[in-house]
Design a protein around this nucleic acid. Structure first.
Lengths: 245, 245
DNA sequence: TTACGTAGGTGCGATAACGCACATACATCG
DNA sequence: CGATGTATGTGCGTTATCGCACCTACGTAA
């Protein structure tokens, strides 16, 4: 592996980029690249994961689907982490669905290889465990936010978390899709998005939301975004927030 | 360590009880017993944990406290697990508070010892990782439940999770305390509790809620309880639910 | 250019939970 | 036993969100 090809990974997935040269070489050799379309279901609730995914330009939503058809997202995974935590925790499956929220590319690795690398108990294991804690923080904050905050604030939080994991300011997603993630009515999202647009924080066009005023969005958000962002920075040692990008 | 003293641990904390004799001997030698009072704060948000706790008869709540004073619980830990997951995940602290929800006893272990045992990569590590996934499931389901379900159903879920972790049917807790956990008004809890009492599922007395009809409570609960319970059973390989106890 | 499918906007009554105020009831302790 | 503190019960107007209905606007493809 040349340093040039390592750089490719570095630019694309922060978890992979944090590996040291010696470990990176072995890990990278076990990765393959895939493109994932919007809406694609990577795995269903209760299924065993076929692969662990290290997203580069795509974003993955962890979604719960209830008996009555209601849905709610518990977390977002992008180029900051990986999909497949249950593989090395030992449960192999979870009760959530993983679905592509924003189309793009990802690296993936066979479960057997992931577990093998994890068991080497090196820097990679350390990273995976720290990422697990970061994800737990995100899920926890989602729980609290769902209970205590209004839809408009939650939409800000959600847009910020998504924005952090994308390289563009234009989020290709409908209000209907967002409503499924937030677990609220589509009209509720439309209303909240209109309010944010009126404040010139975002621009609403058919099928796309563009972030106009990033700092303004942070100010309009509940504290939940910043708590999660700080913990990601603390645990994974780099800035995910694009505030100063 | 005699088998009699091992049996003491077995009866009191299921995680410790799942260890094999050889490993158990070493782990048990590093534990000390403590009594914990209702309301005692084991650690504050952002603090480093002084100890990892393996509850026996006490129950611990993981609680988030927001800027405006609003609170919401993200998970309950009892004799099924341990408090201190961030220690072996590498983050050392979390943004939640841990508070005693039901007074009782617990074993505890120094962080250094816990990490040392974790790094041996034996059955103990395996258990800790599986428990981590179980806890993640509980937190995730709390997030979904907070979004999609009514207070009465959530109260059922919460009572069941607490009941599973206690040896008595009488839960010593006020409506006010419960309202802090669920993140709702005290009056909301009173109302919901009255409805459950009217159905003869629980008995409400000053400062105590007694579970009368365990199966009825499960029927009145949202699906969230059963999902969490099943995952605990699957991941930790034994029945937590007292349905058939 | 028109038609059709889908995304977004708006209105309105229903409902769940809130915030506040205050009444009642129980438990303990001087 | 009676006073006090705390837990619980109840009422009421307010607010956020829901569920439904329906309308408008955009975009692509016949």
């Amino acid at each position: 592996m040349t340093s040039a090809s390592k750089k490719d990974f570095e630019q694309l997935n922060f978890l992979l980029a944090s590996l040291e040269e010696s470990e990176a070489k072995r890990v990278f050799s076990k990765l393959e690249r895939v493109s994932l379309d919007l809406g694609h279901v990577i795995y269903e609730s209760g299924e065993k994961l076929d692969y662990a995914y290290f997203p580069t330009t795509c974003i993955v939503s962890l979604l719960y689907i209830m008996e009555d058809g209601g849905t709610a997202e518990i977390g977002i995974i992008g180029n900051d982490g990986l999909l497949g935590v249950p593989l090395f925790l030992g449960g192999d499956s979870t009760s959530s669905r993983a679905v592509i929220q924003s189309a793009g590319d990802s690296y993936r690795m066979k479960p057997k290889d992931l577990v093998e690398e994890f068991k080497r108990a090196g820097r990679f294991q350390d990273l995976l465990l720290r990422y697990t804690q970061a994800l737990m923080t995100q899920i926890s904050q989602t729980a609290v936010c769902n209970r205590l905050h209004a839809v408009e604030q939650q939409l800000c939080r959600w847009l910020l978390l998504s924005h952090d994991r994308l390289i563009t300011d234009k989020l290709v997603m409908t209000h209907d899709l967002i409503s499924n993630m937030l677990g609220v009515r589509r009209e509720g999202v439309t209303l909240a998005a209109k309010k944010l647009a009126a404040k010139n924080l975002i621009k609403n066009t058919r099928g796309t939301i563009e972030v106009i005023d990033r700092q303004g969005l942070e100010d309009a958000s509940c504290e939940c975004y910043e708590i999660v962002n700080s913990e990601y920075n603390r645990l994974l040692g780099r800035g995910m927030s694009r505030t100063f990008a």
